[in-house]
Design a protein around this nucleic acid. Structure first.
Lengths: 346, 346
DNA sequence: GAAGACTATGTAAGCGGTTACATGCCAACT
DNA sequence: AGTTGGCATGTAACCGCTTACATAGTCTTC
């Protein structure tokens, strides 16, 4: 194809200056109706698309927001990104989406690339809340909002979920039933999963049931869950003591369920299980899983809103938002004060 | 923060012209070692990041590739995108990822936005292989490659999967076992899912088993699968006739399995089921699912490779690639010529 | 020791827009 | 008629880089 058209081509054809074409395209009111139409029809006829790169250079704004998530193929982050995209698009911004793969160095690299592309702001799910990345952005005066992670630094805006509350909700549900024993399977220390466990344990203890609580650390995968079942049975007599098990993610919960079924322990009549995340298929699992869910989509939206606010008003007070998680009750956990076991097969 | 540094700031500080700074930063060899070091240390010290937007305007290349997929939160497309990203990144390109939500008009809009951003090329999973989108790109001389869809237009490059072959593979496996009857649950006509069904049916027929084949259309969701089971049993006597069921996606397959279990029909000893896609959890399902998998990651990589080729050499002959799908054998389908039923519970 | 041949650097013209300011025009007012 | 003022448009500087070309200094080479 011949080379791309520019404004001056359109200007020449319309017999006006490029300033006038520019005015027409940016909806400046000071243009005669007739001129405007002449220009617009030329634009349409030749399918002229103005160059944002030239415009961006000139206006020193790109209307582009950099987004850095940990893993681009993880549905959680993509729901987040979708929430972000929806508000950005509504406001005429473009999203530059990248993923760090949980790698601090790569994260910093990506941020640098975003800065070179002169994004107007950055949204990120940081590997650590304070890092080279945040440092670079601050030095370059680029506004940013942290997602899915809270920061102790008063000056940074973040939008995250109240993981402690999530764990508390699970405990609350279990406490309302007639369970005699509670198990908490925690994940990696110092991560969101351990906050969940904390919330759970705290609630159990502050209801005076601390003596009925046992904790197991470093249980994080489906297989971890499946494999730990025999020892849980041995040590906690799951087959005779009505027990509630809280896990800090759904994979573990599913592994546990699989293990319980394999050992013929009825769920939820004998043992109740609550997971966390509501991953796809939690609902479709052979025993539909009771779980705690995060408002990923709103999280993205709120973060994007906050960022746009920050861009418009550089000394806007940073918002520090902690979204409330929600409990989704399904068959894997016995209903409050119910004594009849429900069927394990849907 | 103070306003962003520019090359001329660095130049002034280093006591050289901006041309020299530019040479240093673009690794031009014609710079004295000492000068280079002086400039580089200034750059590092002040954390100067050159503006790609200025550079892009000047060079008329952005090193940015627009990627349009149907659904950003669907793991399939994200695997694809990951494949794309891996080769783009390796070649110093940035990916601008957007999603059309299967909407032709939105797709065309996105393409226009990409063109305004002057992307060097576009990768897309088009709603239709020929559309306004492809038209706009051609008129603007922007190279593009179609993914996950084949085009009859000789001049367009595409990378897709051989869906017919995928169906054939499933049939081939079933034919090697001692099944007496075959059911094919097809999805929406004229889509990739129906190509899968065609491949399956063709293979069954060309092995002289056409008389043992029944076909059901418009079965596409988990619930569709679950709900159709009773009528399948009634019409095909699944409880007494050893039957193989091929579905054009894994959700349907899981629904079918659930239905079979609910009706007490043993899998795979009595009925074998093969799905398509290998979605997450196909492997972890209560009966691990035999399924056909696409090489999503390679698909993205190959498409990106092809696009870069096209960008370098405008009259490079379009590649038209059809990747071979692969069969993953798990418990839901009886093994070839095996008579002992396997356990349905892992 | 002067002509060439390098090498290292500077100069300045773009790239394709935006926008402050200048200009020209015409109706309205004194 | 002369001034005023508002509207429509043109002029040109600028955004921050790249790069062709010009320039100046240093080595060879005969």
């Amino acid at each position: 194809m011949s080379k791309q058209l520019t404004m001056s081509d359109i200007a020449r054809m319309a017999g006006v200056s490029i300033a006038t074409v520019s005015r027409v395209l940016s909806n400046h009111p000071m243009v005669r109706e007739e001129t405007r139409n002449r220009v617009l029809s030329l634009v349409k006829e030749h399918r002229y698309e103005p160059s944002y790169v030239a415009r961006n250079l000139s206006t020193r704004r790109t209307h582009t927001i950099g987004v850095v998530v940990d893993d681009i193929s993880n549905p959680f982050f993509m729901e987040l990104a979708k929430g972000v995209e929806s508000v950005l698009q509504k406001n005429g911004y473009t999203m530059l989406l990248t993923s760090s793969g949980w790698d601090t160095a790569k994260e910093a690299d990506l941020i640098r690339t975003l800065l070179r592309n002169r994004v107007d702001g950055v949204l990120l799910t940081p590997v650590h809340p304070e890092s080279e990345s945040t440092d670079v952005m601050r030095r370059n005066g680029v506004p940013f909002v942290v997602m899915n992670c809270h920061s102790d630094n008063e000056s940074v805006s973040y939008v995250s979920t109240d993981n402690v509350e999530g764990g508390r909700l699970a405990a609350e549900l279990m406490l309302r039933t007639n369970l005699t024993r509670f198990l908490c399977l925690s994940g990696v220390p110092h991560q969101s999963t351990s906050e969940r466990a904390e919330g759970f344990m705290h609630e159990i203890r502050s209801n005076g049931r601390g003596d009925d609580l046992s904790v197991y650390d470093e249980v994080r995968t489906f297989d971890d869950g499946y494999n730990i079942v025999p020892s849980l049975i041995a040590r906690n007599r799951l087959d005779v003591v009505r027990t509630g098990i809280f896990t800090s993610n759904d994979f573990v919960a599913m592994g546990i369920l699989e293990g319980l079924i394999a050992h013929g322990i009825p769920v939820p009549s004998q043992v109740s299980v609550i997971g966390y995340d509501d991953i796809a298929f939690a609902e479709r699992y052979r025993i539909p899983l009771t779980t705690v869910i995060q408002a990923k989509h709103s999280m993205g939206q709120l973060a994007a809103d906050e960022l746009l606010e920050l861009i418009q008003d550089r000394n806007h007070t940073p918002a520090r938002l902690l979204l409330k998680p929600r409990l989704i009750v399904r068959d894997s956990c016995i209903a409050a004060h119910t004594h009849e076991p429900r069927s394990a097969v849907p």
